[in-house]
Deep mutational scan, measured.
Amino acid sequence: MQNSHSGVNQLGGVFVNGRPLPDSTRQKIVELAHSGARPCDISRILQVSNGCVSKILGRYYETGSIRPRAIGGSKPRVATPEVVSKIAQYKRECPSIFAWEIRDRLLSEGVCTNDNIPSVSSINRVLRNLASEKQQMGADGMYDKLRMLNGQTGSWGTRPGWYPGTSVPGQPTQDGCQQQEGGGENTNSISSNGEDSDEAQMRLQLKRKLQRNRTSFTQEQIEALEKEFERTHYPDVFARERLAAKIDLPEARIQVWFSNRRAKWRREEKLRNQRRQASNTPSHIPISSSFSTSVYQPIPQPTTPVSSFTSGSMLGRTDTALTNTYSALPPMPSFTMANNLPMQPPVPSQTSSYSCMLPTSPSVNGRSYDTYTPPHMQTHMNSQPMGTSGTTSTGLISPGVSVPVQVPGSEPDMSQYWPRLQ
């Protein structure tokens, strides 16, 4: 039975679970980093996980050691009161100082060594604690504590007292930064006198190289990059290397530039699409467009005044059976039934097929058609009795279509119309 579990990581490298990497692998990681390889490249070359490479390099940059820390136990506290007071002093002298600059000053002034120097995250935590204590304490208590930490007896009751030896409130920041720059020169002199001055200088240079600022491109470089971006948004590694040799930039910087440029292009394309949609959409909808001609068919113009009344309900007709019959029939052209047409008796099958359309009241044959006459024609229609054979009435077949029909004066039988409509 094995005491430890061995495995293979996602890159194909072998590791022992819970145990640190061998010293030979750690040394190779540092050597590759000094030669300029990126952590992701080191991870692929040595088949070590990216997190492990970053952790080893980060500890090497901070402490200069590649040895693993002790497994188990607690780390001794490195942010001692003396170190905290120095950090507060540096922050007062130059409020814009960075944590890694404070760390360098602690090393250069001999406050800490490589073994007990606090990390950048520890210094940031100390600065946050100082800021929170400043908010919790009152103004007087804060000034007393700062005077105690600074070891001075001057008056701290006013704002300019934060910067000793100065009279203009805006000047101390520059003086403090100048003092810090002077301390940086002392850093070089002190570290050069040490035993491991060369190694420390190499480590600091490598650290500065990794902690780079934003790349500033010249106009020629920007023009070359934009020209390549117009050709393709995704250049391959050969195109990037050719462009890197042409404009004297690292291939990694060119790759990052193209990634950022593609993101910018997507944002601009989104804005262009929004403007295009806004320009195509009308600002207001016309009133006429809300009524579609496919839904509402136009009603033909009436030929006679009587045809303006298109349904039985508008003429005072309360018989719903006839109203439904007229509205359900398709529109037909106007025609006239003459008196000489043969009077065919209704076929029983045809009569039964339209039995649902006729009223059940037996008085329908005896009703006159003056009910369908509009009010303004009552006088004219009353002067001509319906009993004469020459009287013409208008029957409504569908809305908007008038059918003048000659009705025999002897017997106005409704059943004569249905064979004609089939």
Rank of each mutant, 00 (worst) to 15 (best):
residue 4 S to W: 11
residue 4 S to A: 11
residue 5 H to L: 13
residue 5 H to T: 10
residue 6 S to I: 05
residue 9 N to S: 01
residue 10 Q to G: 10
residue 11 L to W: 09
residue 11 L to D: 00
residue 12 G to L: 03
residue 12 G to S: 03
residue 12 G to W: 00
residue 13 G to S: 02
residue 16 V to K: 05
residue 19 R to Y: 06
residue 20 P to S: 05
residue 23 D to I: 06
residue 23 D to P: 07
residue 24 S to G: 14
residue 24 S to A: 11
residue 24 S to M: 13
residue 27 Q to W: 10
residue 27 Q to K: 14
residue 30 V to K: 14
residue 30 V to L: 08
residue 32 L to Y: 15
residue 33 A to M: 10
residue 36 G to N: 14
residue 36 G to Q: 06
residue 37 A to M: 08
residue 38 R to F: 03
residue 38 R to S: 06
residue 39 P to E: 05
residue 40 C to V: 14
residue 40 C to M: 14
residue 42 I to C: 03
residue 44 R to S: 07
residue 44 R to E: 09
residue 45 I to L: 13
residue 46 L to P: 00
residue 47 Q to L: 10
residue 47 Q to A: 15
residue 49 S to R: 00
residue 49 S to Q: 03
residue 49 S to K: 03
residue 55 K to T: 04
residue 56 I to D: 02
residue 56 I to Q: 01
residue 57 L to W: 01
residue 60 Y to F: 07
residue 62 E to W: 03
residue 63 T to L: 04
residue 63 T to Y: 04
residue 64 G to R: 06
residue 65 S to W: 01
residue 65 S to V: 07
residue 68 P to L: 01
residue 68 P to M: 02
residue 69 R to T: 06
residue 69 R to L: 10
residue 69 R to Q: 08
residue 70 A to I: 14
residue 71 I to M: 07
residue 72 G to N: 00
residue 73 G to F: 00
residue 73 G to Y: 00
residue 76 P to C: 09
residue 77 R to L: 04
residue 78 V to N: 03
residue 78 V to Q: 03
residue 79 A to Q: 04
residue 79 A to Y: 03
residue 79 A to T: 05
residue 80 T to M: 05
residue 80 T to I: 09
residue 80 T to F: 06
residue 82 E to L: 09
residue 84 V to G: 04
residue 84 V to P: 02
residue 85 S to L: 14
residue 86 K to E: 15
residue 86 K to I: 13
residue 87 I to Q: 03
residue 88 A to S: 13
residue 89 Q to A: 13
residue 89 Q to H: 13
residue 94 C to A: 10
residue 95 P to G: 11
residue 96 S to G: 15
residue 96 S to A: 04
residue 96 S to E: 12
residue 98 F to C: 13
residue 99 A to N: 04
residue 100 W to E: 02
residue 101 E to P: 02
residue 102 I to Y: 06
residue 103 R to E: 05
residue 104 D to P: 04
residue 105 R to E: 15
residue 107 L to T: 08
residue 108 S to D: 13
residue 108 S to R: 10
residue 109 E to Q: 12
residue 110 G to P: 07
residue 111 V to H: 13
residue 111 V to K: 13
residue 114 N to P: 11
residue 114 N to H: 12
residue 114 N to Q: 13
residue 119 S to L: 00
residue 120 V to N: 09
residue 121 S to M: 04
residue 123 I to W: 03
residue 124 N to V: 03
residue 125 R to K: 00
residue 126 V to P: 00
residue 128 R to F: 02
residue 129 N to K: 06
residue 132 S to A: 13
residue 135 Q to W: 14
residue 137 M to W: 12
residue 138 G to L: 12
residue 138 G to W: 14
residue 139 A to H: 09
residue 140 D to I: 09
residue 140 D to A: 10
residue 141 G to V: 09
residue 141 G to K: 15
residue 142 M to F: 07
residue 143 Y to M: 12
residue 143 Y to H: 11
residue 144 D to P: 09
residue 145 K to W: 07
residue 146 L to E: 14
residue 147 R to C: 10
residue 147 R to M: 11
residue 147 R to G: 10
residue 147 R to S: 10
residue 148 M to H: 04
residue 148 M to I: 07
residue 148 M to S: 10
residue 149 L to Q: 05
